[in-house]
Amino acid sequence: MIHAIKRGFIVVLGLLVLLSLPGFLWRPQQRSEVRSHYQTLMAPVFLVPGSSATQNRFNALVKELNRETPATHSLLRVEVKTTGQLVYTGRIQPGDTRPFIVVGFQNHHDGAQNILKQAKWFALAFNALQKTYKFNHFSAMGHSNGGLVLTLFLENSLDQSAVRANRLMTIATPFNLEEDDAAVDTPLFKTLEAGRQRLPRQLVVYSIAGSKTFTGDGIVPFDSVNRGKYLFQDQVKGFTQITVTGANANHADLPENQQIVALIRQDLLS
């Protein structure tokens, strides 16, 4: 009897060893497995201003976003010179896992050729920052042409094996530039459309349109913002379009619009 019970004890110990075997065999792969699903604590939020605006464009917005949140987030501003040189102002506080990083360009002029150049410059700044801060996921917000810069960057320059894009919010981004005629495709839109399959699959995109008149926000035609669906729909994990009207709904005021600030809090920072 006692012998039989001791046998049960030994059977369980044997089972323990048996169940541990797959773990022993798997252990050499463990490090790479852990690394592949590893997400850094830091996930910065990139902010890219539109044409004619500098890296100081979002100072007021960041101040606004930092109000009423338990932890304030630091603000780092980067200006990319036409030579590719990076000029930093502000700093990321140690321990801040969600810093805002504003990337502005010395050449911040409008026009398709400039926007393509700005996307390259953004990639330059992004890679330098990624090397410094070693984050492996991030979110981004672009106002006006800044959204085009980010979309071009995501399509062409993001190393998706190293860095994961979580969320993208574009505010009044003219995917078809200032083209009023819905039947005309600008060359930049065609470029964006051609590269849409390279967009990160797990990305969640929000496109916000301001509506001052029934056709647009005073500068960007509504139809041009609406073109975003041809790029993101069925390419990314989620695509949401939002139209904001009321006070401060004209193009330049949109980043400080209270509804949009609330949307940024809710959809980009949460």
Binding site: G23, Q30, R31
Partner: peptide
């Protein structure tokens, strides 16, 4: 579901 005594071994990378 890792067997109890084996948890630390895997958690420390062997």
């Amino acid at each position: 579901g890792t067997p109890g005594p084996f948890l630390a071994f895997l958690g420390t990378g062997g």
